[in-house]
Simulated assay, not measured.
Amino acid sequence: MSVLIVIPARYASTRYPGKPLAELKGATGEVKSLIRRSWEAASAVKGVDRVVVATDDDRIKAASEAFGAEVVMTSPDCANGTERCAEAFDVLGGGYEIVVNLQGDAPLTPAWFVEDLVAGLKGDPMAEVATPVLRCDGRALNGFLEDRKAGRVGGTTAVFTKDHHALYFSKEVVPFTDASFADEDETPVFHHVGVYAYRPSALGAYPRWASGPLEQLEGLEQLRFMEHGRQVLCVEVEARGRQFWELNNPEDVPRIEAMMAQMGTA
């Protein structure tokens, strides 16, 4: 099945304006923009036919083309990354059987997360969308809880059925647990990794649907699929010793840089 990766990137982020051009220093001291690191992560995925950056901003376009990325210009009216992916898919003329949304704020996404995601969607004919989930260890869960106490939006969590079909996604920590966990402990909480694989039929329908109350309250685009009765598959992925974090706030830059230093990411 042919696979397209789209990296949606907008300049006018409410929480972090200009985020795609934020600079991150790797383990060797080399500084690269967030959008470049995200493109490099996408380019490392096996079995992909094409990788494009989708943006509405000339600064992001120029920066992306400077390091060799293919860029698709999209409307500034796209409400989220899924809508931007849908428009980019149309601009390119379709022709791919699976479209992956690798959001431009997740430079630490390992290639196998996306490879497992695509395999999961291929293997579940009932699912129209798939997204990875990663079981939290105590360190990750405690980080989520500290962020919420400090009033920061950290990672998103997911709950799902025994068949791994999504029940809900939230920026709160769900399910609730009052247990204490050491850093290396396994926990019952799953971190939702902000990557999506879509079948074209679901992706094409998405921009035509009204945004529902859950999507609006949580600010989570994947809830629109669920509010319109579409099946979202949660594909459990393995960290394999890698740390993972999205860049949501300026305060996340030193956290991600520390992770890259620890993992030896250039």
Rank of each mutant, 00 (worst) to 15 (best):
V114Y: 00
V114L: 07
V114P: 00
E115S: 03
D116L: 09
D116F: 02
D116Y: 04
L117R: 01
L117P: 04
V118F: 00
V118H: 04
A119T: 11
A119F: 01
G120A: 11
K122V: 08
K122D: 06
K122S: 05
G123C: 08
D124N: 13
D124W: 10
P125A: 09
P125W: 03
P125N: 10
M126G: 15
M126F: 12
A127R: 05
A127W: 09
A127N: 04
E128R: 07
V129Q: 03
V129P: 00
V129H: 01
A130Y: 04
T131H: 09
T131Q: 10
P132D: 09
P132V: 10
V133N: 02
V133F: 11
L134H: 05
C136F: 02
C136L: 15
C136H: 08
D137L: 13
D137W: 11
D137A: 12
G138Y: 09
R139S: 14
R139T: 08
R139K: 15
A140I: 11
A140Y: 13
A140P: 02
L141Q: 04
N142K: 11
G143E: 10
G143F: 12
G143V: 06
G143A: 01
G143H: 12
F144H: 05
F144T: 01
F144I: 06
L145N: 15
E146D: 11
D147M: 02
R148M: 10
G151H: 09
G151V: 05
R152V: 10
R152P: 11
R152S: 08
R152C: 06
R152M: 11
G154M: 01
G154A: 08
G154E: 02
